[in-house]
């Protein structure tokens, strides 16, 4: 009765369950400016969707959710288009580079090992740093302040010395064009290796390395994710035939609604509160992955294609 058959996934799912999963991930996406692929793909695999179809259909769903989220944040004046486009150009370069890199790694063997370790280390590092930093800020900014300028100076001097400085009005910062381009490339490489949209790395990069205000970070990140996922969806549909549109549509209905509420909640929270919740989430995923690596799996074989 409440089931719908998914032609590409080749299985049927409970409509209500998929809708709720979409709403939850959409909410997170709207609040934090992340695509949510890191959460959605494992959830879909739990209800019997093959890993490749789960990942590809999820990127189709993210297109919808991030359109909705970008629009909501744009109305609040939270999208820095100039920065977003520069990051995007870098991201596409990095993504192409990353895909080639992973081919080489696969050829050398043990690529999966490297991917999973990168994942855990990156998430752990980013999560802990964000958590501690925002905790200090929440406790009364003074404790963290004396440390910062001291640490910053070298990095700040380097940033200032780069050519092609440009003013980013929306973010209220002045930077060399090279910064977002290079950092975009860096995140693009990592995202391609890890097989995710990269929102989880992009947000901390924008906050800590580009020094953008948190609210603009969320809107700009969503804008950038939108284009990354359009690219991924079309490529997956064309080469691997793994996009299940029916599944994506079900998720979409939930996630676009969730993203709208998320954007509103995001507006109500302070930047440091946002950071600490996001940091907790990152750490949670990191621990979950770590346990997955440490515990003996119940089945010692998997179909090829998952990431």
């Amino acid at each position: 009765m409440w089931h719908l058959y998914l032609p590409i996934a080749g299985n049927s799912v409970n409509i209500f369950l998929i809708f709720m999963m979409g709403a939850l991930v959409g909410l997170l996406s709207g609040i934090f400016g992340v695509g949510g692929g890191f959460l959605m793909t494992p959830l879909l695999m739990m209800v019997g969707i093959p890993p490749t179809v789960a990942a590809a259909s999820d990127s189709n769903q993210i297109v919808g959710a991030s359109t909705s989220g970008t629009l909501a944040h744009y109305r609040m004046g939270n999208v820095d288009f100039k920065m977003g486009i520069l990051l995007l150009i870098g991201g596409i370069l990095g993504g192409t580079l990353g895909v080639q890199l992973i081919k080489v790694l696969r050829h050398m063997g043990n690529a999966d090992f490297l991917i999973q370790i990168t994942y855990v280390v990156m998430l752990g590092f980013v999560g802990f740093y964000m958590f501690i930093e925002s905790l200090q800020a929440l406790r009364g900014g003074k404790t963290s302040k004396p440390v910062k300028p001291h640490k910053e100076s070298g990095y700040a001097r380097l940033v200032k010395s780069l050519p092609w400085q440009m003013r980013f009005e929306k973010s209220g910062i002045e930077l060399s064009i090279l910064m977002p381009l290079l950092l975009g490339t860096f995140v693009g490489v990592l995202a391609a290796i890890m097989g995710v949209g990269g929102g989880f790395i992009m947000v901390p990069v924008m906050v800590y390395l580009l020094r953008m205000p948190m609210h603009v970070v969320v809107g700009t990140s969503l804008f950038q994710i939108l284009f990354t996922c359009i690219n991924v969806t079309i490529m997956q549909a064309n080469t691997n035939h793994t996009v299940d549109f029916v599944l994506a549509l079900l998720l979409l209905i939930g996630s676009t609604l969730g993203a709208q509420f998320g954007a509103k909640i995001s507006r109500r929270l302070k930047g440091d509160q946002l950071k600490i919740i996001l940091a907790s989430l990152v750490l949670l995923v990191m621990f979950q992955m770590l346990f997955g690596l440490l515990l003996k799996p119940s089945i010692l074989l998997t179909y090829i294609g998952g990431h």
């Binding site: 189709n60 769903q61 297109v63 919808g64 959710a65 991030s66 359109t67 909705s68 989220g69 629009l71 359009i230 969806t233 079309i234 490529m235 997956q236 549909a237 064309n238 996009v243 549109f245 994506a248 549509l249 979409l252 209905i253 676009t256 609604l257 993203a259 709208q260």
Partner: peptide
Amino acid sequence: GTLSVLIAIFAGWFT
């Protein structure tokens, strides 16, 4: 793929 993307964008925009 293109249709899937367009419908997703439309759905997001519509909401």
